[in-house]
Amino acid sequence: MTEPNATQSTTGTTTAPTLLQKPTISVVEAGKVLGIGRGAAYEAARRGQIPTIKIGQRLRVPTARLLAILNGDSRQPQS
């Protein structure tokens, strides 16, 4: 069995160092960071509670905006 690296938690979820390495993450990854399921993550994204941008047909979550929200900045910048 391999040891988790510095950007992985022991549960396999995305961690803050990993977020800082990627400009965007999937809605599902954002849900894992927030501790919610896939359906709840997509519903929160639909309601604007998770910031998203659409790239082609993919819905992505900008990591800088997600981290800002997690750090207490509740302002929702315009996309």
Rank of each mutant, 00 (worst) to 15 (best):
S74K: 15
T10N: 05
I69W: 05
I50R: 05
A44Q: 15
Y42D: 05
A16K: 15
S79Q: 14
P77N: 13
R38I: 08
S79M: 09
I36M: 15
Q76C: 03
G12F: 02
K22Q: 15
I55A: 11
A45C: 06
S9T: 15
A64S: 13
I25L: 13
R46W: 04
R47P: 01
G31E: 01
T18Q: 13
T63C: 10
R47S: 10
G48H: 04
D73Q: 13
T24Q: 06
G72Y: 06
R46I: 02
T14M: 14
R46S: 12
I25N: 07
G56K: 09
Q76H: 13
P23V: 08
I36V: 15
G12T: 06
I53M: 09
A64T: 13
T11N: 09
P17S: 06
I69G: 07
A6L: 06
V61I: 02
I69S: 05
L19A: 08
P23I: 07
T2R: 11
R38M: 02
I55K: 07
T15N: 03
L20F: 01
I25C: 12
T63M: 01
G37V: 06
G37Y: 03
G56S: 08
S74Q: 14
A30K: 05
A68K: 13
R46P: 01
P17Y: 01
E43G: 11
R75F: 03
G72E: 02
L19I: 09
T24G: 05
R65K: 13
D73C: 07
R65D: 06
S79I: 13
E43K: 15
T7L: 06
M1K: 14
S9L: 08
K22P: 01
Q57D: 10
N5F: 00
L34S: 00
G48V: 11
R65H: 03
K22N: 13
P4N: 11
G72A: 07
K54M: 11
P17E: 08
D73L: 10
P23G: 05
Q78T: 14
S74V: 15
N71W: 01
V27Y: 03
T18H: 03
T11V: 04
I53A: 01
K54N: 11
R60C: 10
